[in-house]
């Protein structure tokens, strides 16, 4: 998780740097009195890289993926939980009680 988090921070920094470069570029254009048609190619590349890094970090940092039970290859439902709300104590355990000397001490 640590490495993925660092990568995420790095991605955000790259995105911030791309923003800064674009603003800088527009100011430059204003001085040169030219029209702004789009950011330069290296900024576009930076944007793409930052986006991919952030995406990867967002998928990796929060935790593992859970399987969708009816579709996963290995992890299917194998049994139902016991119906504990309807648990009854009047079973054969009453006739053969577990011999324990367990006690709650305080």
């Amino acid at each position: 998780m640590g490495a993925a988090f660092v990568v995420g921070v790095f991605g955000v920094l790259i995105l911030a740097h791309a923003t800064y470069s674009t603003i800088h570029y527009r100011e430059l254009l204003k001085i040169m009195e030219e029209e702004f048609s789009g950011p330069p190619i290296n900024v576009l590349f930076e944007l793409l890289l930052g986006f991919v890094l952030c995406l990867w970090a967002a998928l990796a940092v929060p935790g593992k993926f859970l399987s969708i039970l009816p579709h996963s290859e290995e992890n299917r439902i194998v049994s139902l939980p016991e119906n504990l709300d309807f648990m009854i104590f009047n079973h054969r355990g009453k006739v053969f009680p577990t011999v324990t000397d367990l006690k709650l001490k305080h």
Partner: peptide
């Protein structure tokens, strides 16, 4: 209760 150790159950419930 399920193991019929009613003393233990009683103590836990008292706590």
């Amino acid at each position: 209760m399920d193991c019929q150790c009613l003393d233990v159950a009683k103590d836990c419930i008292n706590a």
